[in-house]
Design a protein around this nucleic acid. Structure first.
Lengths: 214, 214
DNA sequence: ACCTGAACACCGTTCAAGT
DNA sequence: ACCTGAACACCGTTCAAGT
């Protein structure tokens, strides 16, 4: 209500970010334009320059926002769902990632936009992305220590887990789901990440104990 | 050598596609511009209109090219590597997908560009993408029949496999590999797709027979 | 310190005109 | 049938000038 006035002389930076997300959600990433964002925030087209050096800097800020939001969502799920062991906890992390992508497709698209693929130019973005990666990495190591994830290079295992979850999320928000409910697809991806495609895994998944733990 | 002359009055369409891929490889997808493509092909900026209705139509043609190239690469790998059973064949398909992405990152980016996410507007693109999907779907069903992939909705299993392979490919071409050789990461993703993260799978993977096959 | 307005080079798209 | 050249509205970016 009273926001519109505060924008003009206040936190223009945040106003631009809000307007940018609205724009992406309405008309897609290709429609994201500095001039349109400025227009929606009610300032001249040159005003964003004070807050974002160029278009890439705005995209980087949006991506950073996305990574922080994802980390927060993962944390909140962890707090509310109370996973019983580290394997369930890891599974919850994957589901949270996919949920976040579906709830905020604009955020995920901008987080992995080619424009900001080189994160060395944006240290804050780098840190935000690393924080999410560290959650995954830590989750893998913890589950390994408890014998709930097989042994091996944690980096390589974390990468595999990230690939599955990220691939699932991006395919779903790009509308690649076909003839099958989204819920079923998510469950299939998360279960396959744990059990694999091979038939034997179904048996081992039904076991309560472990077999080749440390 | 004699190509340049042939372009001006000949297969301009193909010349534009070639120029577009060169441009994307050199300067990335955001730099893809109809005017620059026309310039490189040596024609006026309005000439592409005869072959591509608008920018999206060009991107769709590039994406279609990408899907056909991927299908061809998968076929050639299948012919040369002679997989012994349907599980190995499925694994080879995944590796081929990732190899293709790394060899032709511009193709993969354009294949999954948000601009052409809605493939209903481009039937030829739809068909090319479906052909790749059908290969995967068929591979899953065949492996199921041989008892080398667990039972369940083939669509859901194919989606999980696609998620892993596609996620791996996109993360790698976006330079998300960290501190670990690419080869190791690919092997981890492909192995995890088959075995899962859980410890029991390592044992079952070592078995020669099946256990819960049909 | 923060924002404006004019300016420049670029882009997508259209369309009458050329061959 | 295929391509050109001028035109229009839009964009990113820069910069002197305003408050």
């Amino acid at each position: 209500m009273t926001r519109k006035k505060a924008y003009h002389h206040g936190n223009l930076r945040q106003a631009l970010i809000d307007a940018a997300f609205e724009l992406i959600e309405e008309r897609g990433v290709p429609a994201l334009t500095l001039r349109e964002v400025a227009r929606r925030a009610g300032v001249s087209h040159a005003a964003p320059k004070r807050h974002f050096a160029d278009r890439s800097a705005l995209v980087a800020a949006l991506a950073e926002h996305g990574f922080r939001g994802l980390a927060a969502h993962v944390e909140s799920v962890r707090a509310s769902r109370q996973p019983r062991d580290s394997a369930e906890r890891l599974r919850a992390l994957g589901v949270a990632y996919i949920e976040y992508a579906i709830a905020h497709p604009a955020h995920l698209r901008v987080m992995f936009s080619p424009e900001v693929a080189d994160k060395t130019r944006y240290p804050e973005l780098q840190r935000a992305a690393d924080a999410v990666h560290d959650m995954l990495h830590g989750g893998i190591e913890k589950a390994q220590r408890e014998g709930l994830v097989r042994r091996g290079d944690p980096n390589a295992l974390a990468f595999a887990a990230w690939s599955m979850v990220h691939g699932c999320a991006t395919l779903l928000i790009d509308g690649q789901a076909r003839r099958t409910p989204v819920r079923t697809l998510i469950e299939s991806a998360v279960r396959t990440l744990h059990d694999g495609l091979e038939p034997g895994a179904a048996v081992s998944a039904a076991r309560t104990g472990r077999r080749a733990g440390r």
